[in-house]
């Protein structure tokens, strides 16, 4: 049986901002489809930079980045939107558009993909019901609590059924109970086949859930298998 194409494959990737020092050095890893990984490390270790490379907000300064089998260094600008539609991102600061309603924020990825309005309505209402925000469909983000904004952000990230879902400190602004509820939500999505990477400081949660861990320190990556089934094809410190 042929091995499945990795969702993401990084080889000796380095990243620097402008003429500054490298914030990521020789990052090498490969993610299996349907895997769940935690990305941990102290503040300033490069977690957000690594996520930016993965959700195509930046190109690496050196090395190879393959997403869904496409070489990002050689991909044209016109190819990127289609790749980005296969990626969902949950930001620590939510990045919701304050002038849009909850409904319109969640509908955004479908609208940019030119999905019919009647399909958008059906999908968004279903998803908002799933994350428990059906009653807040017309509310604007500034009127929502932190936990509600986080769920809107998650709903927007998963509405187009991405193959890869990334979350940057999703539990950073919510209490422990809400944090574990969110992680349960990610587990559910993972069971449906979505590959998940969660960047977090919450070591207790990482230990409790037992998924493989990518640990970043000073721009270098080290991967440890979790207590659950290993899902990293290859790794290198």
């Amino acid at each position: 049986m042929e091995p499945k194409t990795p969702i993401a494959r990084f080889e000796n990737v380095g990243l620097r901002y402008g003429l500054g020092p490298e914030v990521l050095q020789d990052i090498t890893f490969s993610l299996k489809p349907g895997s769940f990984h935690f990305l941990v490390g102290p503040s300033g270790a490069g977690k957000s930079s690594l996520l930016k490379l993965m959700y195509l907000a930046m190109r690496p300064s050196r090395g190879l980045v393959h997403l869904f089998g496409h070489d990002i260094q050689t991909a044209s600008r016109d190819q990127l939107p289609a790749l980005r539609r296969s990626i969902g991102v949950v930001f620590q600061d939510y990045r919701l558009l304050d002038h849009l309603s909850t409904f319109d924020n969640v509908a955004l990825p479908l609208r940019v993909a030119n999905v019919k309005e009647q399909d958008i309505k059906r999908h968004v209402e279903e998803l908002l019901a799933w994350v428990g925000l059906k009653d807040h469909m017309h509310a604007r983000p500034p009127t929502l609590s932190g936990g509600q904004k986080q769920r809107v952000s998650i709903a927007r990230a998963v509405i187009s059924r991405p193959k890869l879902l990334m979350a940057d400190e999703p539990t950073g602004n919510v209490d422990d109970r809400m944090g574990f509820r969110l992680m349960h939500l990610f587990d559910e999505l993972n069971k449906l086949g979505t590959t998940i990477v969660v960047a977090t400081h919450n070591e207790a949660m990482v230990n409790q859930l037992g998924h493989p861990v990518m640990r970043l320190d000073n721009g270098s990556l080290k991967v440890t298998q979790g207590t659950r089934a290993a899902s990293i094809l290859g790794s290198q410190a």
Binding site: Y55, L56, A57, D78, P81, A82, R84, R85, I87, V89, R95, L97, L108, P109, V112, A113, R156, S160
Partner: peptide, 8 residues
């Protein structure tokens, strides 16, 4: 945000 959600 629009770019990340896949907007051309």
């Amino acid at each position: 945000v629009l770019h990340i959600t896949g907007a051309h």
